Computed example of a mutant assay.
Amino acid sequence: MIIANPAAGGVGADLVWQIVRRCGRPVSVRWTAFPGEGTDIAAAAANTADLVVAVGGDGTAREVAAGLATAWRAVPMLIIPAGTANSLYRSLWGATPWAVALSRALAGAPARRLDLARLDGRLVLSGASAGFSPRVTHAAKARGTSYRAAIEEVAARYRPYPGRVLVDGITVHNGSTLLANVGGSRYRGGEFQLLPHSEPDDGLLDVCVIGGEHEVASILPLTTAGTHLNRPGVVYARGRVVRIERTDGGPLWFEHDGEVLATDRASRTLTVFPAALLMITAAESAASAA
């Protein structure tokens, strides 16, 4: 089963036809018509499909993952990257072309059981963040600009917020906050390796908090190589439950998988959902191989 999102930037009939042709067998294709439909299609596909291919970006992948993770029958999933960021595909496959990934999946490559996170009745796949990142995501979507252009725009006027982050009930950060990222995926925004040590199947959520003393222009380039962790004011932790708070009671800007949530809360809590999803990836992690 192929589930394609026509609203994703790189998805079109030509790409889907290439995927169908490479499958070399009869395959069903479903196009999503509205946000959230990918979840329903995936849940229904789990009754009969032996592989579900999500064609789109990180948001499309999350919808399909949510449907498969809650289905009665475990069916492996493969991502074909065709969105704006494609962060999770990069985390799982690196620079491997999608055609190679598809060939491996069709040849029976083993699937890994990836962790998800629970958030207010939602399932999180790639990751979630508070502060600077959701402001950038909002600006990019509202103005139809690239993520890079939105970073420059938001950085010029962004002010850190007073925040606290707790991991398994222990405070790991309390003070001025540029951003807090939880995952999941090592990469966010396509190129920023905020969680360089994250393993998607170790039963834990990785957390990176960058303090408000850092300027976006100086700290963000370091995240592309994952070399930001040794800087003062940067905290990295792991745990099963992560709570992110805005301590002055103001609205907390928050997103997950590229979807900006309503700014009607001052805190958000994520809980790991271990081994929730079968996913075809480039290789097993150390945790899986052990």
Score class of each variant (00 low, 15 high):
residue 103 S to W: 06
residue 168 D to P: 01
residue 129 S to T: 08
residue 192 F to R: 09
residue 19 I to F: 12
residue 194 L to Q: 05
residue 90 R to N: 08
residue 108 G to V: 03
residue 188 R to M: 14
residue 65 A to T: 03
residue 25 R to L: 11
residue 247 T to K: 08
residue 257 D to N: 01
residue 10 G to T: 01
residue 248 D to T: 10
residue 205 L to K: 09
residue 143 R to I: 12
residue 78 L to H: 04
residue 228 H to N: 00
residue 96 T to L: 07
residue 245 E to C: 06
residue 19 I to Q: 05
residue 7 A to S: 11
residue 84 T to H: 07
residue 164 R to D: 05
residue 169 G to R: 08
residue 267 S to P: 04
residue 225 A to N: 12
residue 232 P to N: 13
residue 231 R to A: 10
residue 18 Q to Y: 09
residue 131 G to E: 00
residue 283 A to K: 14
residue 190 G to D: 08
residue 126 S to E: 12
residue 120 D to R: 13
residue 199 E to W: 06
residue 4 A to V: 07
residue 23 C to V: 10
residue 188 R to P: 06
residue 170 I to R: 15
residue 256 H to I: 04
residue 49 A to R: 02
residue 179 L to V: 06
residue 178 L to H: 00
residue 105 A to Q: 01
residue 205 L to Q: 07
residue 147 Y to R: 11
residue 97 P to T: 02
residue 8 A to I: 03
residue 104 R to N: 11
residue 205 L to F: 01
residue 278 L to F: 00
residue 233 G to Y: 11
residue 264 D to K: 07
residue 66 A to R: 06
residue 108 G to A: 02
residue 105 A to D: 00
residue 127 G to Y: 07
residue 141 K to A: 15
residue 218 S to P: 03
residue 180 A to D: 08
residue 64 V to I: 10
residue 132 F to P: 04
residue 21 R to V: 09
residue 136 V to K: 09
residue 144 G to T: 02
residue 72 W to Y: 09
residue 212 G to Y: 02
residue 210 I to L: 15
residue 109 A to Y: 02
residue 254 F to A: 09
residue 67 G to A: 10
residue 43 A to G: 04
residue 106 L to T: 03
residue 43 A to S: 09
residue 18 Q to G: 09
residue 279 M to L: 15
residue 93 W to G: 04
residue 30 R to T: 09
residue 80 I to V: 15
residue 150 A to Q: 12
residue 197 H to A: 13
residue 241 V to Y: 09
residue 198 S to Y: 01
residue 74 A to G: 01
residue 42 A to K: 00
residue 102 L to V: 01
residue 272 V to N: 05
residue 181 N to P: 03
residue 210 I to C: 06
residue 18 Q to A: 12
residue 266 A to R: 11
residue 204 L to W: 09
residue 117 A to N: 08
residue 248 D to C: 01
residue 249 G to W: 07
residue 158 Y to K: 03
residue 174 N to Y: 12
residue 59 G to K: 11
residue 49 A to N: 00
residue 155 A to L: 06
residue 18 Q to V: 06
residue 249 G to H: 05
residue 169 G to K: 07
residue 79 I to N: 11
residue 40 D to Y: 12
residue 113 R to Q: 08
residue 143 R to Y: 11
residue 87 S to I: 05
